[in-house]
Computed example of a mutant assay.
Amino acid sequence: MKKVLIVLLLAAQGALAQKGPVVSFGHVDTLHSNILGEDRRLLIYEPPHDTAYFSKPAYPVLYLLDGDGYFAVVTTLLQQLSYINDNKACPEMIVVGITNTDRNRDLAPVPDSRLPHSGGGAAFLRFMQEELIPYIDQHYATAPYRVLAGHSLGGLTVLNALVHAPQAFQGYIATEPSVFCGNEWLLHTLRDTALHLQQHDLYLGVANTLYAGMDTAQAKKDTSLYTYHFRAILAFRDYLKQHPESGLQWAWHYYPDDNHSTSATISLYDGLRFIFRDNPWPHQLPVPLFQDTTLSNDALRTMLTTHFTKLAAHRGYPVKPSEPLINQMAYTCLQMGMPERAKMFFQLNIDYYPESFNVYDGMGDYYMAVQDKAHAKAYWKKALSLKFTDEINKKLQAAQ
């Protein structure tokens, strides 16, 4: 497994203006594909996490087509949506940017005379299913929830995966998909395919590629080549409308002020917000409601556990609150003179992360704060049985 750091260097006229720390977006990994007969370069982002104190979590994975172009903006976007400024609009995620070697070959599912080398989409889909996903699951801390995102031909690949490999991904973001490719091959295959897409989510972003002054209703009636791309996407949308029995949860949005190119970023943002629409904590938690004494500790705990139970039902695997965040909330309550609320949060962390030494250390600190030395020592001993640290050992010895 080859890894190289991806960095952003602030440069002026081709040279560094000032030496200093680099800004890292992630690293480069390389996977050899037997199916495609070549090495594939992957851009990898992993959320920052302090494993010296906390359990290493498993993360959902966003697989990003045309990774060369979108990796930096998507990783930054996910940081903003998942933890910066206490955001919880999306979960923290691993990002796998799949860079291109022969874009037309990989992303066009069938030959198209307008696209040289096109038609290798089936092999590329096999590569993702049989080689890429198993490799990522083996080498990174992944949860069993995957999102595939793509634009233009990448968007077509997203829809192709939805129809022909729905077991590979659970979330899909298709922006401006080239549904016209291969004389609307995808639309023709839908007529012979029964879709069963329960617990799958699709976001479809459509840009304004019409004549000036033309609205969508006029475009659907138009027969010119200029509107062919737009009409083919709407035909796919209409198919979804006509087949609610598929069980697919989906949404679409028309961006009248964006063209084919500019729609990519805003559609990725909206797509992530749609797929993870249930992710935000209830009632703007954790700030400021976790400090609200009008809400009982039991009611607050029930609100939180119910929220994560619903997320687990939607995604199909156990979803937990962040151990560091719950830990932070517990210590904040302790410092604010709310010891029983702090105890509730410490216990919540113990219930969700029973194998973590840190959660027992925290409960020991709670008991020491309320002058219950016997229970404090018991919890610190439990923490030390899982992982020895000088810090906890010194607290235990001082309490003897």
Results as ranks from 00 to 15, higher is better:
6 I>Q: 03
390 D>W: 04
341 R>C: 06
283 H>C: 10
108 A>K: 00
237 R>S: 14
187 L>S: 12
374 A>K: 04
80 Q>F: 14
45 Y>R: 05
68 D>R: 08
242 Q>N: 09
14 G>R: 02
308 F>S: 04
375 H>C: 09
12 A>H: 05
390 D>T: 11
162 L>E: 03
27 H>T: 04
200 H>L: 08
77 L>I: 06
255 Y>A: 13
277 R>A: 12
135 Y>S: 14
382 K>I: 12
299 A>G: 11
62 L>W: 05
205 G>R: 03
110 V>I: 08
192 D>R: 06
187 L>K: 02
26 G>K: 09
57 P>D: 05
170 Q>A: 14
194 A>V: 12
217 A>H: 08
180 F>L: 07
164 H>V: 15
327 N>Y: 10
235 A>S: 15
143 A>I: 13
97 G>L: 06
318 P>M: 06
107 L>W: 02
232 A>G: 08
279 N>I: 09
392 I>Y: 05
89 A>T: 03
71 F>K: 05
371 Q>D: 13
47 P>V: 08
372 D>Y: 03
216 T>V: 15
320 K>T: 07
175 T>K: 00
161 A>Q: 10
155 G>C: 11
189 T>D: 09
134 P>V: 10
137 D>I: 09
81 L>E: 06
307 H>D: 06
73 V>C: 08
109 P>N: 15
305 T>N: 04
18 Q>L: 15
342 A>R: 01
185 W>G: 05
269 Y>F: 13
144 P>T: 12
322 S>E: 12
330 A>G: 13
191 R>E: 12
327 N>E: 06
16 L>Y: 05
50 D>R: 12
107 L>A: 04
203 Y>P: 02
372 D>C: 05
227 T>F: 00
111 P>C: 14
25 F>V: 10
116 P>T: 08
109 P>C: 15
99 T>S: 07
397 Q>W: 10
387 K>S: 04
290 F>H: 09
21 P>S: 15
87 N>Q: 07
193 T>E: 10
124 F>V: 07
1 M>S: 14
105 R>A: 14
359 V>W: 04
169 F>T: 03
179 V>C: 10
81 L>H: 07
359 V>G: 04
284 Q>L: 11
313 A>S: 13
68 D>K: 12
218 Q>L: 11
367 Y>R: 00
316 G>Q: 01
345 F>E: 03
265 T>Y: 03
113 S>D: 07
308 F>A: 08
306 T>E: 11
327 N>T: 15
23 V>H: 11
168 A>L: 02
267 S>A: 13
150 G>K: 01
86 D>A: 14
242 Q>D: 13
56 K>V: 09
380 W>F: 10
61 V>L: 07
85 N>S: 14
91 P>F: 15
4 V>D: 11
139 H>E: 11
229 H>T: 09
307 H>W: 08
366 Y>N: 04
149 A>E: 06
